[in-house]
Design a binder for these strands. Structure first.
Lengths: 134, 134, 134, 134
DNA sequence: GTGGTCTAGACCACG
DNA sequence: GTGGTCTAGACCACG
């Protein structure tokens, strides 16, 4: 799989993995209905423990991004991805505050900050979606 | 002090504290040269451990946002705040990726995302700086 | 058939199926002597595994709610449904404890709880039985 | 502690534990703000693994019944227990359906069923709360 | 074969 | 000392 983990990072592995899967969904590499590797195969593929993979899968399932069936395994949500809920917007803003504050202190101006955000957003959505929407 | 901590959050307290101090600097409530409370007094003020306050102060000092003198205590950096370094931009982008990916998956479009970023940036800079720059 | 399964639920499919059949019997849609679909046909009808349907049938047979004949197939018990045995009452109470405890902790009062129970009971017995008893 | 587990039961241990803690809160043995044993001490006390205790604690925390602080450990929610939300009522009814259906099939009548529910509810609330409300 | 559960044991950040 | 994370390995229900 295209997942890349930094085992040295202080960001927990399961969190990195969940993040990478989220980016996969954002970019379109992972489409609704797509099957993900079983916890065991992905674990051995990435060289980590199956419990660590499971923790990432469970977190994404609980938030509604994945479905986990007993035998069929793990699948990207088909029945309505979570939308832009109020609680998500609140979380988004909370996370942006920390980022924005340091940028402001370092002297980055508003336009530059917004531009960086825009570019990162474009980057995660990737090119594979071109023509899909809008 | 105006710091507010969420003891239930899974974000470490020292990190929350450092973040709040950073927001104080971003908004202008904390100006270069301003003295911060002593480790002892801030700890008892916030009802948290001495070590926790110290850890937040040390982290901000190490990055160049604070100066710590033996007896004069803790002071907001006077000799040039850290600027928009390449490594900061890299960190900024890394942090934005996670945020942007989830926003994209949830169906937020680019314009809305950039607008949220812009507004958060404005909010953290606050009104107290009006007239300082630009 | 009128059975509806939630393949995403963490309740095993065979258990959901047995529950739905039980509700069919409670409502009167399934009467003593009524024939149920064969394991094969129900499985393909519901898009699930043969074993799963079989497991649900066997569980209900073992408890005395169904009869399974070699060639006549599966039939709702004709020779006396299981009654309100002591062991059933014990099981009933055990299951209610968990439900009731959470309701109590959330601040639901006794009257409301009893009322919810009453209404659910009425709902599962349904209207098709009207005139059958009492 | 007063928790009793049935290691033979097919109900997962962590679920039994969470249920017992919930009953403790329902009965008033566990009051808001009360400290619970650390995962380690409760685990050794009950003769089970600390991860199993942790799983029960995390489940109750995620639903809002417990707070987990880094050093202070685990505490019964003080800032507003979860209330009777719509989603809880929906879950309650779903769980009652299965129970009620079998009771109905076995010939238990509505009044008896409601009475059983009422008594179980009284039992879980216990006597220690007498005089607390109403 | 799959995920779910449980155990045992380790290291670390936090406070 | 506490919970958080990770590993390794086991057994089992489900399908």
């Amino acid at each position: 799989m295209w997942v890349e983990l930094d085992l040295q990072s202080d960001v927990p592995i399961y969190e990195q993995l969940a993040g990478q899967l989220m980016e996969g969904m954002a970019s379109g590499r992972l489409q609704p209905g797509d099957a993900l590797p079983s916890v065991r195969s992905l674990a051995s593929d990435l060289g980590i423990n199956l419990h660590t993979v499971n923790k990432a899968y469970q977190a994404l399932r609980q938030e509604g991004f994945l479905q986990i069936h007993r035998k069929q395994g793990v699948v990207v949500q088909t029945q309505g991805m979570p939308g832009v809920t109020d609680s998500f917007v609140a979380k988004l803003r909370r996370q942006l505050r920390a980022v924005a504050a340091e940028a402001a202190v370092r002297g980055m101006d508003e336009r530059r900050f917004a531009e960086e955000c825009r570019e990162v957003f474009r980057a995660v959505r990737g090119s594979e979606r071109s023509g899909m929407e809008e």
